[in-house]
Simulated scan of single mutants.
Amino acid sequence: MIRYPLLSRGATIGVTAPSSGLPDELHPLLKLACSRMENKGYRIAYGDTVWTQSKAKSAPARMRADEFNEMMRNQDVHAIIPPWGGELLIEILEALEFEHMSAKWILGYSDISLLLLAITLRTGIATAHGVNLIDMRGEYQDATTAMWQNVLSTEADGSIVQHSSTKYQKEWDHHDPSPCVFHLTEPTCWQSVTNREVRMEGRLLGGCVDVIRHLIGTPYGDVREFREQFVSGDPVIWYFENCELTTTDLRRSFVQMKLAGWFEQCSGILIGRSGANQAVNGYTAEDVYHDLTDELQVPIVYDIDCGHVPPQITLINGAYAKVHVEDGKGTIIQHFS
């Protein structure tokens, strides 16, 4: 069975940096984000790692792992939200105390998604793929982003409905801050490879392709064992987003996942918008999706609200989801069962 944490009013949020921390000049952004959380009624417990950044990481791997392990053991910390992603979270995996992890929400994306997927696969604890803490610093949040609180406050055996956004942010403009952080200007359109209505259901698993692909062949990426042990063989809906990969690298990654058995009993695939997807010799992202559809014979929906082109829906690794996409709009119902 999947174990679902519950975010309650007045909860203490642990802020640690298992990947990247913040250099001195960016400390005010984190403090502002945390003050917004405190205004919502949460308490903040800072780790030392969030205040440092050197050589592509917040701190040495052992220090990052120890701090994360301590927050997972600490009963006074009710959820963990890192400031943002980074590059080298994978260094801490072998030092994590999976056998002692209690059920508390961990929320994030990008490099954090590698941590999220590894924890759910190894422990059966649901984890939350969604907004980073640093992006909560705005005076208010758009409706899609703001759903993270509702999702994480859903009780076990309950369900939560989320809809595709109305508009998305085409590119980051850090020199022109806005009250909402995100500049949502472009019409959102979820697209299916077949250009037809799509319905799919199954257990959600996924994250940023750039990093979660490195779980393949390790003790932290055994999807088959997860399905047998925690979800009674239920089918899987995979969700992915591409941060920096070219289309051929994306294609290689999907083929490797297929060869590793990740797509066995797959009922469908959701793929987020991307600012990457650089075509190689005319080979486009849409070509990648068509090739994968032909091979797997499952529905694929792309340009969904997930990843580095915000806003994004909060997707729960391990939750049983029902997805409906029609006329460019999408609905995802997640059941915490």
Rank of each mutant, 00 (worst) to 15 (best):
W190N: 05
D210Y: 05
R203H: 01
H183E: 06
F226S: 07
P187H: 04
V193L: 06
W190S: 12
M200F: 06
V198I: 10
G202A: 04
L204G: 02
V193M: 07
G206K: 05
V209E: 09
S192A: 12
S192I: 01
D210R: 07
C180T: 10
P187R: 06
C208P: 00
S192R: 03
L205C: 13
I216K: 02
G221N: 04
R224F: 06
H214G: 02
H214F: 14
R203Q: 03
I212R: 09
R213V: 09
R213Y: 04
V209T: 15
V193G: 03
D222H: 10
V181M: 13
G217E: 12
I216G: 00
P179Y: 06
L215E: 04
F226A: 12
W190I: 02
E201Q: 14
E225R: 15
C180S: 13
C180P: 00
L204E: 07
S192E: 02
R224D: 12
L215M: 04
C208V: 07
L184F: 11
N195P: 00
L205T: 12
P179F: 08
C180R: 05
L205N: 10
R213P: 00
R196G: 14
G202I: 10
R224N: 08
Y220Q: 02
R196S: 15
P219G: 09
E201G: 14
V211I: 11
V223R: 11
M200V: 10
F226R: 01
N195D: 14
V209C: 14
P179T: 07
G217P: 07
I216S: 06
